[in-house]
């Protein structure tokens, strides 16, 4: 009878088979060179798009967060309030739970700021007693989203004449950044699904090309997993290689883009490469390997039924 019986699935045999699977996977990649090339290309192209989009999305989020953090409340103090009272009011504001930071801006300082923005238009107001502005507080909240609430609390405090935080702009900004985030997510999910589909199809082509091989394996008594493992490793390997290429490209390009914008578009801050590329590399490699593996398993299923 045959050389093996059911009970012989020892560790030695598993190890021996493992070596065989890896070897088969490598041989098969080279034997089916064009198919391998096609699979790797598909992974490369889709992950390159996906990766670029992740980078774009991260930066939009980052930018939105930056803008949000720059939003502050300006609370103007009544002119009649004597300086000690102003100081007491400041202490009161900083006590508020959601407030992170309070900065006092005297009316002279405010006028200087205005002058810096508008120029000589304000010249006439610089003389003592002619300043039309009020002393004010610039207040930052812990979370930007709390701004409307804190603003309302501030308005209720005695001694505060008016509160301004761009009531129209803030909710709009929040809804826009949220929308960008969601559209980005939807787009990325769509791309990932497309990638799995494309790769499954490409691997299906390679498997179809080897349907004969699989049939022979079945006829000499190979178990399903014995047939499957080399394909699984092959898919994993092709996926990982396909992910490595866009990873390297994106790393290089992003570093370039970061340096370029820092010099030429200094007002447009990008996420530090160190902060984003490590994560992106891990994600893309993992995604590539999983996509390859899944694609293999999906496409081989049909051929195992002999």
């Amino acid at each position: 009878m045959s050389v093996t019986s059911r009970g012989e699935l020892t560790a030695v045999m598993i190890f021996r088979n493992f070596i065989y699977y890896i070897k088969e996977a490598f041989c098969s990649i080279f034997r089916n060179g064009w198919m391998s090339f096609a699979s790797v290309s598909v992974v490369t192209v889709t992950l390159l798009m996906l990766g670029s989009f992740i980078l774009l999305n991260k930066n939009v989020e980052f930018l939105a967060a930056e803008i949000k953090n720059q939003v502050e409340i300006i609370a103007r103090v009544e002119e009649t309030l004597p300086p000690p009272e102003v100081e007491r009011l400041r202490a009161q504001v900083i006590q508020l739970e959601k407030v992170a930071e309070v900065r006092f801006v005297s009316k002279e300082e405010a006028l200087q700021n205005l002058k810096a923005q508008l120029g000589d238009v304000v010249a006439g107001y610089e003389e003592e007693g002619r300043n039309p502005l009020r002393d004010s507080f610039e207040i930052r909240t812990v979370i930007p989203e709390d701004i409307p609430e804190v603003a309302a609390e501030l308005a209720a405090l005695p001694g505060i004449a008016e509160v301004d935080y761009g009531a129209d702009v803030v909710p709009k900004l929040f809804s826009v950044t949220n929308m960008v985030k969601w559209i980005g997510m939807a787009f990325m999910v769509g791309l990932a699904v497309t990638a799995v589909f494309l790769i499954a199809n490409t691997i299906k082509l390679t498997v179809t090309a080897r349907a004969k091989e699989i049939m022979i394996m079945k006829w000499v008594g190979a178990t399903e997993w014995f047939i499957r493992w080399p394909f699984v490793f092959e898919g994993m390997l092709l996926g990982a290689v396909g992910a490595l290429i866009p990873t390297l490209i994106l790393q290089r390009l992003y570093a370039e883009a970061f340096t370029w914008t820092r010099i030429n578009l200094y007002f447009l801050p990008l996420v530090e490469p160190e902060a984003i590329l490590g994560e992106l590399t891990k994600l893309l490699l993992l995604l590539g390997a999983s996509i390859g593996t899944l694609g293999s398993i999906f496409s081989i299923r049909r051929f195992l039924k002999v």
């Binding site: 050389v3 093996t4 012989e8 021996r16 088979n17 394996m217 000499v220 008594g221 190979a222 014995f226």
Partner: peptide, 11 residues
């Protein structure tokens, strides 16, 4: 040899 590898025969 393939038929033997399939059944897990030692090299």
């Amino acid at each position: 040899a393939f038929a033997m590898r399939v059944v897990g025969a030692p090299s």
